Computed example of a mutant assay.
Amino acid sequence: MELLPTTIVAGPSLLTRASALDQVVGKLRAGKVYRREDLAYVSNAVDRHLREMVSGGALKRLAQGLYYAPKKSVYGTLPPDDQELLATFLRDKDFLVFSLSSYNTLGLGTSQLYNKTLVYNHKRHGIFSFGNRQFDCRVKPRFPKTLTPEFLLVDMVNNLDELAEDRNLVLQMVVRKLPGFDQAKLKRAVSNYGSAATRKSFARWQDG
Rank of each mutant, 00 (worst) to 15 (best):
E37L: 06
V24I: 04
P70S: 08
I8T: 00
A40C: 02
L78R: 06
Y41F: 05
M53E: 00
A69L: 13
R17C: 04
R36Y: 00
G31R: 11
L50H: 08
G31A: 10
R48W: 15
T16C: 09
V46M: 08
S19D: 11
Y68A: 05
S43T: 01
A30F: 15
I8A: 06
L62T: 10
D38K: 09
G57Y: 13
R51F: 06
T7V: 03
K27I: 05
T16S: 09
R29Q: 03
K60Q: 07
G26S: 09
L78V: 04
M53I: 11
A10Q: 02
A10P: 06
G65W: 06
V42T: 02
R35H: 07
V42Y: 02
V25F: 08
D22W: 06
V54N: 04
H49E: 09
T77V: 15
R29N: 08
A18G: 02
G57N: 13
L14W: 02
T7G: 01
G57A: 05
L21S: 07
L28K: 07
S13T: 06
T77A: 13
N44F: 10
G56P: 02
A18P: 01
R36C: 01
S19M: 11
V74F: 03
L15H: 10
R51C: 13
V33P: 12
V9F: 10
A63V: 13
V42W: 01
S55C: 09
A10K: 07
A10H: 03
K27P: 00
L50F: 14
D38E: 06
A30E: 14
V33W: 12
S43Y: 09
L21M: 10
G57C: 13
S55Y: 05
D22M: 12
R48I: 12
A40T: 05
G26V: 02
E52Q: 15
D22K: 08
Y67L: 07
P70V: 15
V54I: 15
K32H: 09
Y41M: 03
G65F: 15
E37T: 01
A58R: 11
G65L: 04
